[in-house]
Simulated scan of single mutants.
Amino acid sequence: MSEAQVVFAEEQPKEKRYAGFWMRFWAYVTDLIIVFSINGILLIPFKFMNDNIQLDIGFWTVTGIISSIVFYLYFLFMTKSFKQTLGKMIFGLKVIREDDKPLTWSDLLFREVVGRFIHRVFFIGLFLYVFVAFTNEKQGIHDMFASTRVVFAE
């Protein structure tokens, strides 16, 4: 190969390999195990308080509020800091913007908080994850909100 061919080959952008449904599913299951473990450690003291009676704040319990906060903060800060959660790291995946610019807080708030909230709160929302299997760029609804993609890390 001549020097011109080598330079040209290096300038070609690498084709993105989008992560499919099953890879993302197993990464998410791994993340849920991690989040549940963190919540288990953080919420143990509440079992010894108030004679093991749950503390309620209106419609919600204190432990439910704390575990939800941990869930959303885990996904938000891991994705902002590393472009991936521990589950995505294990399976070699990362989150990128569709325009390849760095992820912003607003991207991640829409993806990790608003998108996941919709998936978790509305019963039908869980089935919306199946969109990943049928879109060209393997996007879930939360990816569409934030204009993000999940790709294989290089």
Rank of each mutant, 00 (worst) to 15 (best):
I141Y: 08
V29D: 11
N39K: 02
M144W: 12
A19C: 11
M49P: 02
E112T: 12
P102V: 01
F152W: 12
M1A: 13
R116C: 01
N50Y: 05
A9W: 08
N52P: 03
F131E: 08
G58C: 04
F25Y: 14
G125W: 01
Y18G: 08
V121A: 10
V35E: 00
V114S: 02
F46T: 03
L103T: 07
F21R: 07
I53E: 11
T148P: 15
M49T: 06
I34E: 02
Q54P: 12
V95K: 08
M78Y: 09
R149Y: 12
E11P: 00
L73S: 12
Y74G: 00
V70T: 03
G140V: 01
Y129W: 14
T85Y: 04
I66A: 01
I38W: 03
P13S: 15
G140H: 07
E98W: 14
A153F: 09
V6H: 15
L86S: 03
K94D: 06
T79C: 02
A27N: 09
F131I: 07
R24P: 10
F91I: 00
K88Q: 09
M1D: 12
I90F: 05
F131R: 07
K14G: 14
V62A: 02
D100K: 14
L32G: 12
V70N: 02
G115D: 09
G92I: 01
L126T: 15
P13D: 13
T85W: 04
I57G: 01
R97N: 13
Q139S: 09
F145V: 05
V114H: 03
I65G: 05
Y74C: 00
K83L: 10
V151G: 12
K47W: 11
G58K: 02
R97I: 02
R97G: 08
S37D: 03
L76R: 02
I124T: 10
K88R: 08
V121Q: 11
L103M: 04
V150H: 14
D107N: 14
W26G: 06
V150D: 14
T63Q: 11
F91P: 01
G140R: 05
V6F: 13
F71M: 00
I65L: 09
I124L: 13
G140A: 15
K83M: 09
D107E: 07
V113I: 13
G87C: 06
